[in-house]
Design a protein around this nucleic acid. Sequence first.
DNA 1: TATAATTACTATTAATTTAGTAGTCATTAT
DNA 2: ATAATGACTACTAAATTAATAGTAATTATA
Lengths: 150, 150
Amino acid sequence: MKISYKSDYALKTLLELALNYNKGVVSINDLAKKGDIPYKFLEQVLLTLKKGGFVDSKRGMSGGYYLAKPPDNITLGEAIRFIEGPIEPLICASKKRYDECKDFNTCALKDIWHQVYTATSMVIDSITFAELVRRAKAKQKGFPNYVYTI
Amino acid sequence: MKISYKSDYALKTLLELALNYNKGVVSINDLAKKGDIPYKFLEQVLLTLKKGGFVDSKRGMSGGYYLAKPPDNITLGEAIRFIEGPIEPLICASKKRYDECKDFNTCALKDIWHQVYTATSMVIDSITFAELVRRAKAKQKGFPNYVYTI
DNA sequence: TATAATTACTATTAATTTAGTAGTCATTAT
DNA sequence: ATAATGACTACTAAATTAATAGTAATTATA
């Protein structure tokens, strides 16, 4: 149930750019160092994020990347789904496949995966990068902001 | 965020054995056909499940597998964790690593993964194979038992 | 206008994980 | 004895993920 390094890198980077929103560009180099991400790998991730409309860039000397839209207009869910692809634990747990289901036993299991998927979606679709920025800043100020949702 | 085929096969098989609890053994062959699982692969999965104490077997002619403990004594969570290993989306989202966290930005993201992990755990740790059997049987009787938890 | 710093793009390779296959041995009901 | 079954170990293949390499294009600025 792991997420890939690619997604991890992408999200960390988006958060970094969100922290820098409206403050100019950040170079790949700085982003790579800050996030401890292999430069060349990050380069590709950023190109992907650009295609997805999450970031934009300025080329040439003193160029770099910046968030293409306001942080409160990007949810974690959008970003994750874009980078990671479908996040259903089982492909067949998607609505369409689910409806076609004919094997009653495994269907009982699919219900579970569907529940897991729904629970996960609720978490990641309801938080924006603006909120993440708020939390990150709160932490920096020494107010730990643990979130236990039980 | 996918689960592996191995886990999928393991859970389907456990459910099948749970449906057959106290009704004797089921051969690998039957389990493989029923679950549409490659025989040799299932063989290995079953050996793993046996080491984990989930199933037991009877060797020789008319041998086969059976659940090693009552279905209401096995949660999905136990089985998944045993086959799949840790289910945290990020390894560093585990409690220990989490406490050591020093990078405030990525910590904000780790909070999220922790939430996802918690939400997932709540689903899979609170359902037993006995309950899955009940649901599977209900479906067979023509009472679809969709579970939407929103 | 030369230079250095930077993004853009494409291709390749390496590493890891996952999925599946093969073959031989051991056990047991009939 | 034999046929049907599980036990065990090793291997291979396929897919995915992670990372690297190299060259081209762009741009600030000295």
